[in-house]
Amino acid sequence: MNIHKTKAEQLIHSAEFKQLVTLRWTVSIVLTAVMVFNYMGFLYVLAYQKESLAPYVTGKFTIGLLLALGLIVLAWILTGIYVYWANNVYNPEVERLKNKLL
């Protein structure tokens, strides 16, 4: 029990664990910022410069409509990126660190 505890404490204070935690939040916060920035930016333009969203890009599709659909697609892409990263980078590292405790 005692040995296990020291191992756990060592792991918590190890550089590789700290790095993993920092990396995890860097990825999360960058992706969050991209989502928030784009959505808030869209609302800002909508509120203050709505004329700029009115021109047609193709047929009857306005810039505003394409941007709105773009936000939905962006939400899909960002969640996809996160899942891909978490499954292929984060989780293997989690497993490796967990094995160190055994």
Partner: peptide
Amino acid sequence: FDGLIYSIGFLVGWPLVMFLIAE
């Protein structure tokens, strides 16, 4: 068009749930 603005608001919360809260 304006009805879509609400929909987008309801959707964009989900990526945040994933990045910040779920795990």
